[in-house]
Design a protein around this nucleic acid. Sequence first.
DNA 1: GCAAGGTC
Length: 936
Amino acid sequence: MSGGGRTIRVLNVAEKPSVAKAVSGILSRNQGLRVREGRSRYNKIFEFEYTIRGQPCNMAVTSVTGHLMELEFEDRYRKWNSCDPVDLYQAVVRKLVPQDKLDIKRTLEEEARRCQWLVLWLDCDREGENIAFEVIEVCTAVNPNLNIWRARFSALIERDIHESVQNLVRPNQLFADAVDARQEIDLRIGASFTRFQTMLLKDAFVLDGSGNDVRNMVLSYGPCQFPTLGFIVERYWEIQAHEPEEFWTINCTHTSEDGTATFNWMRGHMFDYSCAVIIYEMCVQEPTATVTKVRDQQKLKQPPYPLNTIELEKRASRYFRMSSEHTMKVAEDLYQAGFISYPRTETDSFSERTDLHAIVQEQQGHPVWGSYAQQLLDPGAGLWRNPSNGGHDDKAHPPIHPTKFSAGESGWSQDHNRVYELVVRHFLACVSQPAVGAETTVEIDIAGELFSVSGRMIIARNYLDVYRFESWGGSVIPKYLFGQQFTPTTLTLDSGVTRPPPLLSEADLLTCMDKAGIGTDATMHDHIKKLLDRFYATKDANTRFSPTNLGEALVMGYDDMGYKLWKPYLRSMMECDMKAVSLGTKRKSEVLETCLQQMKACFLDARLQKVKLLEAMAIFFDRSNRSSGDEQHVGGEVVRQCAVCQESDMVLKRKPDGNFMVGCLGYPQCRNVVWLPASISEATVTTQVCNSCNPGPVFMIQFKFRQMEIPPNYNVNHLGCIGGCDETLRQLREICGTGSRSSSSIPARGHGPTASSNTTQRPSTRQGTCTHCRQTGHSSNDCPSQTLHSQSVQSRARNFQSGEPSVMCTTCGAACPLREANTTNNRGRKFYSCQSRDCNFFVWADNVNSSTGAEDMSSSRPATSNSSSGARRGSRGRGRSSGRGGGRSSRAAAGRASTTGGTFVSATGEPISGRRCFVCGDPSHFANNCPSRGAT
DNA sequence: GCAAGGTC
């Protein structure tokens, strides 16, 4: 391409006006730079002289605004009713310049006619390459002789731009192909599923929940929006399925003249009460604490990485509760006005060539953070540190940083001020030293158990001085010496319950999307907003997302079909294929063919299984009488022939409120119905026939009950008969009520107990990996990071079993309800424990019936209003004696057997003497019950 | 009236 002689005319096209301007400024060195208008008011044309490898050039630099073309179906497929949605997998598609881009197209055509070369300055990513080919298509259509070049640059800085124009390459068709494939797949999948589910569901149900005009409602499906919804629903289900689990922990405090230290048990907490109480008793018996370790350490708190789009969105959401969409709007304004750099960037590391000092210098005059900027520039202060590298680089834009000083502009809203301040403070933090703290950790040993406490003193705040959004708590603990001994001020056995994870915040959601590769930095906020616009999800004041009934029903429907269309896998697969196309290991046509073939099969199957979608919707919404008819008969499984009309079958049905019933298909002529207990979470008709009910056959139904809603002696799984012979069903109907309108007190909507019943069976709640901390070995239910202390009383109040007192506590006289252990080791085992929060009475139900010291208590007051509880206790409690191995756990079988007359009784009934409260010396209670405890 | 990706 080296030349010489005659001057040629070169058309340069950038992806956006700002790049056209920057490139022109750099190449012309602002010498002889002329600007004129194009057809589009945003896309100016810059002109100047330049020499490329000895070839004198008349440069004309203009721009597009992102994609110039759009992919669309041919006209005859555009109307929704013009074709079967499945036809959209083969329908002819074409790439066209949409109406609002025609003026840019005209500019390009006019300029291209006069040029010999076309140089493409699009962003250096796959989308940029694809836009390059759109520009090529438009330009070569009017000038087929154009010599086409691509400028590759990694940043809009002088050296890069000059280098790239002197080393022009050819555009990469493979990159553009990858995007073509992605566009076509997105369009065909999105349009087919959107039309399908909108036309199937919109008129079939009363969708008035959104309060908006239902006629214009679109139930869209998209490979990015649906997985985003999936994250929200999955977390919601996880919360619904959470079963609070009680745990115990030992806490120790020590107060001296220097203050109070609260030591944490290094075992964290235990789910096995018996083990915890044995250890606690050991500690109580020999309560002397010995300091075994005193460690002083310097700790650093690092400043954040340079700011990219996702971090900006997350931080604005966390610090200011701004939505990601609004943040980007505000950032765009600031960028347009020249105050911050380009806000859509993945890059979180600065190029070595960036003049960071110059950016700091600009901020020296700011009334609030100006003095910090001055300190940064003072070598004597030692505050400066080169920014760390976050490891991402989109090769097109630098991290977001301030580009112009402002102490606030008159036209700025509060949010403009906030975002600008965040960008500036974040930048200043990035080039600052980390905060330094001195941490002291003290470990003590009480009867072989280890406890620890940490204190922190902040020595140098450094970047924290400017980054007011982050804090680093300090805490002071008394001085301890190795080998020092003391008696704890308090030593308590405390209980708590595991808590479910919180709903996803906007920052969490962005993290999920980022990890799964859903969307790009420039579009992630759009997908989130779309979920709100489509009434699939709502956001509360804490920026936490919940699915709406509509969002949950859609995800539930596809999940029931067995398709993971709401999971990020489809997008990941497409991303892999796109990568393969761009590397040349797969051809575009090949990827398109296989992917669309699979998706078409999936679509056809989903349509065959549309009843699953309808059923899921029916859980949350009432049927509308506008439905077309063929969806009306969501049949049910046949249980028997109706004995009343003797014409139709009785089928098992789930009502919109989630409750089950067996009703006659002859309805409304025949109104025969068998209502089922409201505590059923699942019911399936089996092939087994009841041999006592007539007229037969009456097929047995496999029921699953929600454990929390049935009395403890009933099994969660039950193979039952609705023919009249089943005593268990009869009792549960009485106890729990039914789904019939007259008796139901169950919420009519899917949220609450009904929704949770649908979730306990979901795979997401059964994974071997904790969905909260991502560690294996425990579920999120017992994630150590998710526990909170001292909530046991409230949480147990929700348990059915706690409402059924059956023995009286001899320690404090309060009622002791029969409970069922929920712990990993003791699940299903019965115990009595005192209702009083301040009393520690506890005994396994097995022991109540054996000849231990606890027997007296069980006979002292047999049960309460519920007459059957005594019998239940006898029938089931005894049969479930401890089958656990020996050692510490089984020795502790009696748990906190009780104090009878100041004597502790072991599991075998032997008195344990010599124990007394180490606080006051009283033998009638332990230290955790000591009346003096409140005073410490 | 559908997607997601650019961008104003």
